[in-house]
Design a protein around this nucleic acid. Structure first.
Lengths: 198, 198
DNA sequence: CCCCCCCCCCCCCTAAAGTGGGAGTAATTC
DNA sequence: GAATTACTCCCACTTTAGGGGGGGGGGGGG
């Protein structure tokens, strides 16, 4: 019986996942949390075999939550789930030593198999990310996403492992491509164009 | 046995809801669709008693989908589900004659009861929308909108007929209320919160 | 009455962002 | 091979944004 902990701020997802797991063979949900803090407070008692961990969480994000959970259970297995999959996040998850990174639009069989594989100690589990047809390059999109989160160019550079000036070059390209005068408008335009979603 | 059709672009939600309904007493899922078009193509064959309909869908949104489904089954019952509940959408749902409007963060008992009530022909089913403590004032919204268009604070001041420093005061209030470090993130957050829309 | 919120305005200062130029590599495509 | 495009990096410079203060008037509710 594989013991799963679910961390997602969306109760529908949480309860849905729970129902799905409980109705499957060999799974049981030992804990459920809406954010990283409460996840951390439950993990020791629950002792899950694997954590289904949403990336977008209020307060701590999925990465920070995983780091925190590891302070309690260093070798904990976690499948990171992304509503909006990003190549950059996938790499970040891989570097963190997470068990996998999957977009939420995988079917349940794939998800269940991912949990099984994670518990069995399989290497990094990922999914082919469908490329978004978009005038922005992947790198530019990543930069824009982090800028939208309020990061400065320097911070984005550190996160992406590139130089500050490179980030500037990307923002220039972004503004030029979206035909806007600054990054504030770039984010707005990105939403208008459907490049970004809440 | 209540026959339910699920329309949601998120497979995790879709399959989760399905598992939840199937494991409950008296429910069966007769169809499942990821978007409005495929929902419309399945509804006649499936003949659901009630439709669980996500608002945010690729292509047609939930409202458009409901309208389309009604071209096949005029008196179809639908519970509209919102990830990000908005008073405005709730009113829209009510005016459309939907059976209910619920945020996705309701627990499953409430959701199941909503389906039962809808099928029984209950009046509009809604939930007390928790008021977000940081609603922006009208003026702040105006400022944010112009900033999102790429205007500088000085330009916004001219447009709104107020001083540059006043615009600054507003942007400060905006950032404080949305708990973000700059206007770029403020725009992003505004979209996330549903305050702004493309 | 006072308190709180909204709206308006002002100062100084630093840290960013944006503008103007560059340039080199690697990959892909024509 | 030539041309594009993405990605990387650099400098000097101007403009804007943000942080820290402050104040004042008006309106609604306790």
């Amino acid at each position: 019986m594989i013991k799963v902990m679910i961390v997602d701020d969306h109760p529908v997802v949480r309860e849905g996942l729970e129902a799905m797991l409980e109705s499957a063979h060999g799974f049981t949900v030992v804990a459920s949390a809406a954010d990283g803090e409460s996840a951390a407070s439950k993990v020791v008692e629950a002792l899950p075999d694997v954590v289904a961990l949403d990336i977008r969480l209020p307060g701590m994000d999925g990465f920070a939550t995983l780091a925190k959970l590891r302070r309690f259970i260093p070798d904990i297995k976690a499948i990171l789930l992304a509503g909006m999959p990003l190549q950059e996040e996938l790499e970040r998850a891989r570097k963190m030593g997470a068990s996998g990174y999957l977009p939420k639009n995988v079917d349940h069989k794939r998800l269940l198999q991912a949990f099984r594989d994670a518990v069995a100690g399989a290497p990094f589990i990922e999914e082919e990310l469908p490329k978004v047809p978009c005038i922005l390059s992947q790198r530019e999109l990543d930069v824009l996403r982090y800028l939208a989160l309020g990061k400065t160019r320097e911070e984005v550079g550190v996160i992406l492992g590139i130089g500050f000036e490179t980030v500037r070059s990307h923002t220039r390209a972004i503004m030029a491509k979206l035909d806007v005068p600054n990054t504030v408008a770039a984010v707005n335009r990105a939403y208008e164009m459907g490049i970004m979603r809440p």
